[in-house]
């Protein structure tokens, strides 16, 4: 089952790399934000993979289970808890970013970061 683990880690790395590329190099703000979500999900996937136990069981101890067998075979539950929190934070960050984009789209009529997020000090000087 080691290939499952490797596949998960590979997918996580791929998501992070694609996300970094689009967050840094793509001009469209929505695509940038999608890239940022890719990075977040890639990191979440990596953390989930840390708790994965090959041929393991769900980390809930049931009556009659041998504690030693359970400790050896159960998945590690801590990363799952962390990822749950991380997903919630990611969703709030995403919501705030999209709300700001909505306001700025109404103002500039474009989704290009080159226009929307140009150096504000230069914008001020230009306006003066």
């Amino acid at each position: 089952m080691a290939y499952v683990h490797i596949t998960i880690l590979f997918t996580a790395a791929l998501l992070i790399i694609i996300g970094l590329y689009s967050a840094i190099f793509i001009d469209n703000i929505i695509k940038k934000i999608i890239g940022i979500s890719f990075i977040e999900e890639g990191v979440n996937l990596f953390i989930v993979a840390l708790g994965y136990a090959p041929d393991g069981v769900v980390p809930i101890i049931m009556p009659g289970m041998d504690p030693a067998w359970f400790a050896a075979n159960a998945a590690y539950p801590l990363p799952f808890g962390l990822v749950l929190t991380s997903i919630v934070i990611g969703a709030s960050t995403l919501a705030v970013m999209l709300a700001l984009v909505m306001v700025l789209y109404r103002r500039y009529g474009t989704l290009s970061t080159k226009v929307m997020l140009a150096d504000t000090s230069k914008q001020e000087e230009y306006n003066e």
């Binding site: 967050a23 940022i36 990075i39 970013m97 700001l100 700025l104 103002r107």
Partner: peptide, 22 residues
């Protein structure tokens, strides 16, 4: 331009934070 600056800070933060989480 406070919205622009807020969004800029948010985008940088959204790249910096997952990297820290990694």
């Amino acid at each position: 331009y406070s919205y622009e600056m807020a969004l800029k800070y948010m985008i940088l933060g959204s790249i910096g934070s997952p990297i820290m989480l990694l």
